[in-house]
Design a protein around this nucleic acid. Structure first.
Lengths: 231, 231
DNA sequence: TCGCTCGCTTGACATTTATCAAGCGACTTT
DNA sequence: AAAGTCGCTTGATAAATGTCAAGCGAGCGA
């Protein structure tokens, strides 16, 4: 494990407060691996042998049932997944697959649970992390249940605008995956983009331009209790 | 605070492992209150002044946006809500309202955070609780995104069957709220019940009889990674 | 460069779900 | 008992969303 990776991990809120010796113990069992795109890292139902930390690239979390599949979230550096299963030693509820070439740290779940049991600061950091994850999923549920697909797309675009800090930005994922993430079909996403044109949204390939922010916001009605990440 | 309530709370997984003195500290600031039906206990967006523990009755957690409203969950004794907001000191994402006459313990959030900061066992118990909540919401999202409303109802009925341990049971909530919880309108729930008749579901008012479990299960295709609570 | 693949788009159509309006029936109130 | 309320149901209709099939076009490899 190169020193720079060690520091990246140590700087994560999840690991920054724990005792040095416990962090060292975790790092001793850890190893870094490079994965090509489209590699399955975990399959739902599996027992969580490792806590994953993504250092570079991106990972798709998705779920399947009865031949259908839906994208649940995208994980980007530097962060961990899937923590809840590792700590609880319960089966994965989501599968994970690299979207691009990715560098990922694997921490044996048993080590994580051992340190969790003896390091209170680590336990508290996990609480903060899980509480954030929990709140994110609740927001996602509200988005799904309270909004139409057009409204979900409009609010998604506003969130991306805020993330990029510009009225002009590129989509960070394939449209087909965005569709799945937003709970609709690719065909419908295509139509939804057209449907937002009257509200000042220009789309060319992956490039989005919001030409009338007020108009879009008036339609989307963004709400901090659904759309503000980390709030 | 009567002694019996104290014990009910102490026996909750969330509080059973913590140091006695810390538990006492929490209880000193706590008070029990009886609420009539349909009382708002918390409104989404509010700051969480109290961690709530429900001793009897039932509480609806729901969310609103743009004039629409959806039921997110029902809390039943003995359990806590809304923990994540209290710990994070972040605004409620859901509103809470008593469904019936309910007895509820209010623990000042600041006290909870104070004890959380000094009691590692309490922190670990919170992790377990939050991880469970998180996994429940993930399952709910999968249910919503991967299934049609008819399939959601069918699987809901199978879950209730398992809870009651019988092929015959009463619905534990009003149909209108069940509809909202399952992400559909009351009209559609009515039609969905009819749609399940061919699969061996008999409905009379709140009373449900599953006359052909195999048939229903063949249609519903229940999955532990969506339907098993606490797994 | 040609031709292929693949994701995206479009149109026609089917299905699912919501909306609106009316009526039913249990329960409450007077 | 009569009238009213309220939740549930039903039917007609509309809107949203999904499916299927075809075609477009950028990027890639032969």
């Amino acid at each position: 494990m190169p020193e720079s990776h060690r520091d990246d991990i140590r700087n994560l809120a999840l690991f920054s407060d724990m005792a040095e010796e416990n962090f060292e113990a975790l790092m001793r069992g850890a190893y870094v691996q490079n994965f090509p795109p489209r590699v399955d890292l975990a399959v739902e139902g599996d027992t969580p042998d490792f806590l994953h930390i993504i250092l570079s690239g991106s990972v798709d979390l998705f779920s399947s049932w009865n031949g259908r599949e839906t994208s649940m979230a995208t994980v980007r550096p530097v962060s961990t997944f899937i923590l809840a299963a590792s700590i609880n030693d319960a089966p994965y509820l989501m599968s994970a697959r690299t979207l691009e070439k990715s560098r990922i740290v694997l921490l044996p779940s048993q080590d994580v649970r051992d340190v969790f049991m003896k390091d209170g600061d680590f336990a508290r950091a996990i609480v903060t992390e899980l509480a954030q994850c929990y709140r994110s999923v609740i927001k996602n549920t509200k988005d799904l249940k309270l909004r139409t697909s057009l409204e979900r797309l409009a609010n998604y675009l506003l969130r991306q605008k805020n993330r990029s800090g510009s009225l002009e930005f590129d989509l960070v994922m394939e449209k087909r995956r965005l569709a799945s993430f937003l709970g609709m079909t690719p065909e419908n996403l295509s139509r939804a983009f057209k449907g937002l044109e009257p509200y000042g949204v220009k789309v060319q390939g992956n490039h989005i331009v919001i030409t009338d922010l007020d108009d879009l916001a008036r339609f989307a009605r963004p709400n901090p209790l659904i759309d503000d990440h980390h709030a």
